[in-house]
Design a protein around this nucleic acid. Sequence first.
DNA 1: CGTGCCCTTGAAGATCTTCAAACGCAGTGG
DNA 2: CCACTGCGTTTGAAGATCTTCAAGGGCACG
Lengths: 238, 238
Amino acid sequence: MREARLALLAGAPFLHGLSPEELRAVAGLATERTLRARQVLFREGDEADALFLVLGGRMKLTQSDSDGREVIVRIVGPGGLLAAVSAFANTTFPATAQAVESTTVLSWPREALPELFRRVPVLALNAMETLSERMREMQERFRELATERVTRRIARALLRLVREAGRRVEDGVLIDVALSRRDLAELTGTTLFTVSRVLSEWEAEGIVKSSRQRVVVRSPHALVAIAEDLPPIGSTRR
Amino acid sequence: MREARLALLAGAPFLHGLSPEELRAVAGLATERTLRARQVLFREGDEADALFLVLGGRMKLTQSDSDGREVIVRIVGPGGLLAAVSAFANTTFPATAQAVESTTVLSWPREALPELFRRVPVLALNAMETLSERMREMQERFRELATERVTRRIARALLRLVREAGRRVEDGVLIDVALSRRDLAELTGTTLFTVSRVLSEWEAEGIVKSSRQRVVVRSPHALVAIAEDLPPIGSTRR
DNA sequence: CGTGCCCTTGAAGATCTTCAAACGCAGTGG
DNA sequence: CCACTGCGTTTGAAGATCTTCAAGGGCACG
């Protein structure tokens, strides 16, 4: 069990390149915590006092504006870092972190980080790589939101989810996170109604099969065609 | 001249906290380059082989999708870092950097960075802080784009520009960068037509005064009211 | 077996884009 | 000096896309 755990940790990009001893030491400084589904780990605006690593389950990071409209900034699964920003800047959390399902996280208090980075410098590098990667993804989604139609954005979001949380099942790839239509809308910058309509349409075409908080992608290929605007056959031009 | 230059460098967040000797040494490893207006420094997808610091002038970072629609990811003025991502990750530039006006940049080749960070560790910290700050801004703009109407987004963009490139003039604050309606549209995720209409309307209300590639904000207060949706007087509710 | 949440679908309409046409200023070349 | 040309801008009109609101269905869970 303890060994399985170490293997899990070694798989996290943040802890990549650490020796088993280092791994044990770093893990030893962390606190483990399990959240129930829908439980909140931290809120946007709170003092960023810790760095988190997801061990199992999924967290969603959301921002909301003054009117209460929410946006999902990111969904983080096993091995993912949460609040990487707190590792380097002395600020507040830029988003709210909520468990989508039962989720276990490790946390390192902010004060412990400098010492940690001093003893295991590669950790700082790993965290920065994560941050860079994330920046890239955020920019990409920003561009999508600015230039693309809803349909394409939903296709892309599903493809990303397939990549990050896909599980092969009988009739396609199941997105193995319980996401409501509303969640998908908040991921893509639209409304739950539009998501519902688009999914219904795709269901009729045999591209996906969806039910309550569940989507199975039957034909990823078709989604790619929509995302990239490769007209499948007889599609109306832009 | 050389002294003025050092003072300029010391003002850049990236070089904050360095002693004059360190400053000289770090600057000594950099190459200076001046770009004409509209000249391209690097392109999205090129190998990220250097880190840049803007000394004078302004660069705009853009992404474009497969159809050629462009988005302005960021505008960087004096003291700002460019391609901070290349400092830590071994990848390609995530955006294209083009000079808005005549612009001077310092550049450090990627290979020189590890040595640089070893000798002056605070540089790495500074770069990360910049990256964190940027991440925060990007997330904020993402949320805006997802949840807010065009009018508000334009108001916010102008306010940001006032903060970053504002210069007091007789009748208000001039945004001291030559930005076309198209540029403003690409900053806010809309079309140049909509930007033009909104500016015309605001001009009629005395909030701004705009001409060719030029905007003077006469009443920042009114823009804040629009951005925050504090109904000024008799506004139609959302 | 009810109750609540999530989802679907329709209809109406707001917002924003698209396209077309024309203006005006700046710089160029005659 | 002036006309020419190009680019950035303005404005109108038409219409696509997406949101909003309302109503109802269905599945899961207590």
